[in-house]
Nucleic acid binder design. Structure first.
Lengths: 369, 369
DNA sequence: GCCCATTTTAGACACGTGTCTGAGTCAAGG
DNA sequence: CCTTGACTCAGACACGTGTCTAAAATGGGC
């Protein structure tokens, strides 16, 4: 025990450690200004009954020193932290980052700050605990996560009375959700291609069992059925490749596999823009022309849609609408801590037609296996 | 004054407001476990002299309730906030986001969390004040900012003894800096093109007065001079366009202007990959082949370099090395609050040669204006 | 049943802040 | 000179936490 022999606690309380120049508390600052701590506090909080001259003296000192009250002590006094925790699946997928950027901006406009964390695999528990220890006013999830894991986190948040919201992942029970209507998006793409005369479709990386992908398949099927067609007759999905990264390279490899098929579809719908662009490269490398020989459509309408030749037809995520809805839902929850039923807000996508989709070649035959 | 008639302040202190189920303090939690607050505190902080059974009881209760000590009260007791403030120019430029992602991850690995804010135009002061009020352990700037504005912010941070570091913007006085050696990067590009036989170069969006652009020009000039050539004889820069967004569209427009020149250069070096790809589109739309007729090189080596046909030659920013250096510098400052001289760490770029650059066409003439 | 070691408890204090209260200062007006 | 009103000051308390100390409870061995 190093600090035996306590000082009489009134005089000279902190001579040993601190740099006297640095101001760390209202007390330090009040000493600097030459006013009482309480007076300074009243100035800072805009109380009435203060001389103009006094107020100006404090303001000038703030300019000089850059003094800021300790946010931690402030919160301890019961103030809202005005902080929202944002859980990202990762910071490398463009659409997710776009949503993050918009969300952060909207929150700042409403004078909230953002605590951003990427959920490490299996470490989501720690992140949520950190958010809770920071007493965030709410938590937002952006991206596609393991359903069970997120459900547990959501439950923990509910236990601690912390409002929360999931962006872009449907199916988490008891949770407010804002998500793109991927069924609708896929229907729009299919309708566009069917209108162009295509009747045989290749699916690029649209497989697997996540909710997001199931919705897309359902959209494809619904639109085909609306025209008296069936999945079995009209679609072909190749999935024999080991790597499934859903990226540019995978799209390219998939396209090269499709080229070798006897009955090659004339139109291709992809999981995302990267896969679609990779596929276009694959087709072009095999000597096929886009869109004269094959049509390719992406999903997400990222900036990269402009990069290839021809530019890529895709489905826009409508990020601003998504984020606006999310922020409204969230701040409403923070204000009024009631929650009758979880809300699910669906955002309608918008098809953006560019040059990678065109009329079906006339020589093409229907796909029948 | 609504709260006239104070209660005698000892008994029944908080019956009216709180949901009794929700645990918000160690006191609440200790009541839940059925132990004294001090005992629980000792368990949480791993003190010796505790029954194994007691420790387990607390751990079980944590599992059940998800209780977390209030980080704000903790900090008030003198603990580091273990938080780093990150100032982003924006979240829409891919290289900056890449650095953010890497930085956030490295900091998390070293158990620091990140407070991320985008500097609004003219509002940087508020952001820094927020970081100071959150008592961040350090502040990092990522991107290209207005030099004078950042210098002021840096000065404010220095006044408040808060370590800080600038990534990717050279020239801020009295500040640790980690930045890509853009002079070297540009020299490498030029050396590559000169080796391919090119002697006339078009500059795409490499103009303006920022340090970053000046460095590139200096790199180009240095390499030319090393081979006995001059800027005036070998380079052409068009800058008569109104819009200067340094994006895909601008690159395309620039290329179309170059096509109309009498003495068109055979090789083009761009400010970034977007401009380079836009230029490739422009050249291709005008009937020129890349790289047979013109060579194009980008900068940053973003993912989009793979998207066009042909894929783009570019200069890699070496993000991992950059961020590693930054984190080392930063955490060293947090530990030991000495700073003899500001450190400047230069990161060496790496040229990535792809298909958009090739031998100079044999019919090409030297550029002489 | 008693003693002693181990463990738990209750109470106090500090941290930085906002706010309340009663007392102190100061200048102007009578 | 005294009163009055406008300000300012000093002190106290609470917020949630870690830690210190002295006291109380527990339990095992004799």
């Amino acid at each position: 025990m190093p600090n035996s022999g306590k000082p009489p606690k009134t005089p000279a309380p902190k001579p040993p450690v601190r740099n006297a120049r640095v101001i760390r508390s209202t007390a330090d600052f009040a000493r600097y200004v030459g006013l009482a701590r309480t007076t300074v506090s009243r100035v800072l909080n805009g109380h009435p009954g203060l001389k103009t001259q006094t107020v100006e003296r404090v303001q000038k000192a703030i300019e000089e020193t850059g003094f800021t009250p300790n946010a931690y002590a402030l919160h301890l006094k019961g103030k809202r932290t005005a902080t929202v925790g944002i859980c990202m699946e990762n910071l490398l997928t463009a659409p997710a980052v776009l949503k993050l950027a918009a969300l952060q901006r909207r929150l700042r406009e409403r004078s909230h700050s953002s605590l951003i964390e990427v959920l490490p695999p299996g470490g989501s528990r720690e992140v949520i605990r950190h958010f809770l220890s920071m007493r965030v006013d709410a938590v937002v999830f952006i991206g596609h996560f393991i359903e069970e894991e997120i459900s547990q986190r959501v439950h923990e948040l509910a236990t601690n009375d912390t409002p929360h919201l999931v962006i872009d992942q449907l199916g988490i029970p008891e949770t407010d959700t804002v998500a793109l209507d991927r069924v609708r998006g896929m229907r729009d793409v299919m309708a566009h291609l069917l209108d162009l005369g295509h009747t045989s479709f290749g699916l690029l990386a649209i497989n697997g069992l996540t909710r997001s992908v199931r919705d897309r398949l359902s959209g494809i099927e619904t639109e085909l059925q609306a025209r008296g067609l069936t999945m079995a007759d009209c679609t072909l999905s190749l999935d024999h490749l080991h790597v499934r990264d859903n990226d540019f390279k995978y799209g390219r490899a998939l396209a090269l596999s499709f080229v070798e098929e006897k009955q090659r579809p004339t139109a291709y719908v992809a999981l995302n823009d990267e896969v679609a662009i990779g596929a276009m490269h694959g087709f072009q490398a095999a000597g096929l022309r886009v869109p004269q020989d094959v049509s390719v459509a992406g999903f997400n309408n990222q900036e990269i849609c402009l990069m290839p030749t021809p530019m890529l037809t895709s489905v826009d995520q409508q990020v601003p609408q998504t984020v606006d809805a999310a922020v409204d839902l969230l701040l409403a929850q923070i204000g009024h801590p009631r929650k009758p039923h979880p809300l699910v807000h669906m955002v309608s996508p918008a098809l953006v037609v560019r040059d990678s989709t065109g009329p079906a070649p006339k020589t093409a035959l229907g796909l029948k296996r």
